[in-house]
Design a protein around this nucleic acid. Structure first.
Lengths: 146, 146
DNA sequence: CTCGTTATTGCGAATGGTCGCAATAATATT
DNA sequence: AATATTATTGCGACCATTCGCAATAACGAG
């Protein structure tokens, strides 16, 4: 069973209706190796059907995120991207000065994840997040580096 | 020297002009114990002067964040709030199902911060962030708890 | 297959936030 | 104090996203 079928089955089991729009949106996300913006998902779905509205794109992406089936990540310049859980786990390091992006290994967050579960009973989504801060270059250019 | 004067001096030293609007926005943030939305900052500044525009509020808040003098945090239901660095460090745990908020101690992130600096030369802002996931109650209500 | 229930959709309006640009004003220089 | 430079502002237009609601359609029952 392919990944998008898994996602669709998941929604069905949670009592959600599987509309053609939802299937196409899920397929668009599942078949993309990286992440994409809501606009990109919309553009891709529009090539398959005229009968889809941007509001439906946003609603469905929100549903997938709230069900833990996709992640929403803020990258540089406020760009918001979505990806399925199958998208390889990693951390986006976003410099708040120059806006550059650095990918980091999400294994760094294992300890934090365990502690959040132990101390607060919270199951954190830490496999695909973005962290802001200063890159090496900008630390040397700014008195706020500390 | 009060906190807002510190922030203002910081901007001046970094070559930014200190306009009356900026002073009032900084004072609004510095004098608030918690965090507030851009709209709340705007409402507060509007009680002092008519001569301020919402675009200026957003530009100034963005400047403070990019200079590391304030933090921007996404809470539940997409609400974005701002706070100065003096606002006590903590982590917001945001449940992506029910939207509840749990505050966690930011000390959990010390190890991660050190590793990001050591491995990637990245100075992460981890003292005041939000992490999404599932709270204890929602883990038991959802098959995606794992 | 038909039908009733109700979740979901498309749509235009609304909201939160950003952009381009002329006008304004902070600041440095004289 | 006057003046030039140029950063910053207010404004309306625009963009990304969400909202309310009537119409549509997925799904279960018979």
């Amino acid at each position: 069973m392919s990944h998008c079928h898994t996602l669709i089955q998941n929604l069905r089991q949670n009592g959600y209706r599987i509309t053609p729009q939802r299937e196409m949106i899920i397929e668009s996300l599942a078949h993309q190796p990286g992440h994409q913006t809501a606009e990109q998902v919309f553009d891709q779905v529009k090539t398959r059907t005229r009968s889809v509205n941007i509001a439906t794109i946003y609603r469905t992406l929100d549903l997938l995120v709230s069900q833990g089936l996709a992640t929403r990540t803020s990258l540089c310049e406020g760009e918001v991207v979505y990806a399925t859980r199958q998208h390889g786990p990693h951390i986006h390091l976003v410099c708040r000065q120059c806006g550059c992006l650095i990918n980091a290994d999400s294994g760094l967050m294992v300890g934090v994840s365990d502690q959040l579960q132990a101390l607060y009973g919270f199951d954190a989504d830490l496999q695909h997040i973005s962290i802001t801060g200063l890159c090496t270059a900008c630390q040397h250019n700014s008195p706020q580096g500390g």
